[in-house]
Structures are given as C-alpha cells and as structure tokens.
Amino acid sequence: MRIRDAENLPKPLVHIGHRPLLWHVMKYYAHFGHKDFVLCLGYRADAIKNYFLNYNECVSNDFVLSGGGKTLEMMSRDIDDWRITFADTGISSNIGQRLKAAQKYLEGEEVFLANYSDGLTDLPLPQQLDHFRMHDKVASFLCVRPNLSYHVVSMQGPMVSDIRPIDNGDLRINGGYFIFKKDIFKYMRDKEELVEEPFRRLARERQLLGYSYDGYWASMDTLKDKQQLETLYATGAAPWEIWKTARKNRDASQQLEDVR
C-alpha cells in the first residue's frame, strides 16, 4: 500500500525498469546456476501466473526481426532454461505458512534457498553457501545494515547522550535471503511466522547462522525506495545486476585473448 504502483499488484510485480522486482531476484539466482523455482503465491496469484504465461523475451533481449515481421530471431534469452512451479499458498498466509505449503515441492532437496522477493543485492551467493556448509547448521540468513534514513538515539533519563545514523553502528537486520536444510520444517508449527517461533527454536539450539554482508543491499518497501532503484537501473550500472557485470568481464577477457 506504500507503493502507488502496487495498488492492484502484488509487490513482487512492481517494475524496476522493464522487468518486475521478482524477475530481478530470480535472475540473480539464475546467474549462480539456481534455476528451479517455486513461487509461493498469495495475493493476485493470477497476475504473477499471467506475467510468466505471457512472458515476452524481446523486452530485455536483443533480437532480429525480418520477413516483414514474420521471422523473429532471438540473440539471447532470459528464462528458457528456468523451471517454475506456481504454488497457491493462500491469500492470508504468513511467510511460515507459505514455506510450509511449498514443502511438498521440495522432495529430494537436502538444501534449498528462499527469498522474500522484495530486496536486491550483489551478494556473492557462493560465499554464503560455503559459509553455510562449513558450519553445518539448519538455517542461514543474510544480515545487512538497514538502508534507512533514521537516526538511533541513546538517552540517559531525559537527556540525549548520542545520536547517529541507523546504518552507522552494529545494528543489522534480516536481509531476506535464506538458506535452509530440509530440517527447517521440524522447527515449524502450524500458523507460525517463520522468523518468530521457528527461528527462536533454532537459535536456542545453535542452529541459526547470520551471514553478515556490507556490500549492496536494498529493499523496496516505499515509493521512495522504488524511485531510488529506478534511478540506479537507469544508469545502466545497477549494483544487483551482477549478470551484466559478469558478461562484460567475459567480453573484455575475450577481446584481450583476441588481441593476443
């Protein structure tokens, strides 16, 4: 409700540039080779389904049109190697209930990734996965500094003893990028929110990892957040578009080899 564009859309379908936020998140995972997705749908599930059912590759890829528009040749593709499961998990379900409803689609998966789909980052995902495997715990989540313009105030009685930007300190928040073993479901009870009771149980048993990251991370919660992401996207160098950075680096390396 805090984003005007989302008045009649689920927030993950709000566009950043030519594609919705959800696409940017999925593109991030696909860049690292994770292309089997389960979308836990709730409000306006039909809109998300229809977006992918009517997906237009031409919007974000180069192509050649010939024969008076009769022949279309794609120079690159986005989602032809993605597998997407569309799972209705209830309009009023909380995050925990949505994850629990998707459990049946995770058969055979010892470890899986989960995401709120409302934040973008340039986090090197393999590093978080290596950290998770090294510590061998049930759950891990990204811990980031809040991208808020508020100030933290310290007081002694009625007197202010310190005031500083909220991102200038040790405070960290849940960044919404998760890694779970399938054992996560043993810690969940009916109708519980994911990061409330289940995470507290994990913490008590020392099974919950926090992965601190100080690189780029931003959530899209307000119209101002959307505008900031749009501005970054318009520069052609949005920090979260690591697939573009990787492609440019490959092209540069190839050019260097050609010169040699």
Score class of each variant (00 low, 15 high):
residue 34 H to A: 00
residue 70 K to D: 06
residue 42 G to H: 13
residue 29 Y to L: 00
residue 14 V to E: 04
residue 44 R to V: 02
residue 40 C to Q: 13
residue 36 D to E: 15
residue 40 C to G: 14
residue 30 A to S: 08
residue 45 A to G: 13
residue 48 I to E: 02
residue 6 A to C: 02
residue 49 K to P: 09
residue 71 T to N: 01
residue 15 H to K: 13
residue 67 G to K: 07
residue 71 T to S: 00
residue 28 Y to G: 00
residue 20 P to E: 10
residue 7 E to K: 02
residue 6 A to G: 02
residue 51 Y to H: 15
residue 39 L to Q: 05
residue 20 P to H: 12
residue 4 R to A: 14
residue 8 N to Q: 09
residue 60 S to L: 02
residue 46 D to T: 11
residue 54 N to H: 09
residue 47 A to F: 05
residue 42 G to I: 15
residue 42 G to P: 13
residue 31 H to W: 11
residue 33 G to R: 09
residue 12 P to A: 05
residue 36 D to S: 15
residue 71 T to G: 00
residue 4 R to V: 10
residue 39 L to R: 03
residue 29 Y to R: 00
residue 8 N to L: 07
residue 42 G to Y: 14
residue 46 D to L: 13
residue 69 G to L: 13
residue 62 D to C: 13
residue 33 G to W: 11
residue 31 H to M: 11
residue 67 G to I: 08
residue 59 V to R: 09
residue 43 Y to W: 10
residue 11 K to H: 06
residue 71 T to D: 00
residue 27 K to D: 12
residue 53 L to S: 10
residue 47 A to C: 10
residue 21 L to C: 03
residue 66 S to E: 06
residue 29 Y to K: 00
residue 39 L to N: 03
residue 22 L to E: 03
residue 15 H to R: 11
residue 19 R to W: 02
residue 29 Y to I: 01
residue 54 N to R: 05
residue 64 V to L: 07
residue 56 N to M: 10
residue 28 Y to P: 00
residue 30 A to P: 04
residue 27 K to Q: 12
residue 53 L to C: 08
residue 70 K to F: 08
residue 60 S to D: 09
residue 60 S to T: 08
residue 21 L to E: 03
residue 32 F to R: 07
residue 49 K to G: 09
residue 48 I to R: 05
residue 56 N to R: 13
